[in-house]
């Protein structure tokens, strides 16, 4: 079973990104495949390495980067949504990349399930 995951909300102000992370990590731990996670709308803010949350809280961006490093997940940030919000290659966290919406459509075509996290 291959899951594609779509994250539509930014970190901290909304639970969507936390839920998406927990879903993805659990699926991977249980042996399912999550080849790619796509970040859209304010979800692109998950990719910023400029965020410095308090040390006693989770670091959402770093957590995504580690998940990608541990399991080889492709973290893709929508270029159009990113450009609107000032997310550029220069501020991307480790293992994130910027690409087009075609990468999202491909997940829908190729994977067994596409799971959306957002409002």
């Amino acid at each position: 079973m291959q899951f594609g995951i779509l994250v539509n909300e930014g970190p901290y102000s909304h639970q969507a990104s936390d839920s998406a992370y927990l879903f993805a990590r659990t699926a991977l731990e249980k042996g399912y495949k999550v080849p790619r996670i796509f970040f859209y709308h304010d979800g692109v803010y998950n990719a910023s390495r400029l965020a410095t949350p308090p040390q006693d809280d989770r670091n959402v961006g770093a957590r995504w980067s580690k998940l990608a490093a541990d399991y080889g997940v492709d973290l893709v940030v929508c270029v159009a949504a990113a450009q609107r919000r000032g997310i550029t290659d220069g501020v991307l966290g480790d293992n994130f990349r910027i690409s087009g919406l075609g990468q999202l459509v491909e997940m829908g075509i190729q994977y067994d399930r596409l799971v959306t996290f957002g409002d």
Binding site: H41, V105, I109
Partner: peptide
């Protein structure tokens, strides 16, 4: 909210993939 505008962009790309 931005959802309708950005959602429409996904719809157009999906159609361009002949879905």
């Amino acid at each position: 909210t931005v959802y309708a505008l950005e959602g429409l962009e996904v719809v157009l790309i999906t159609a361009a993939f002949d879905q």
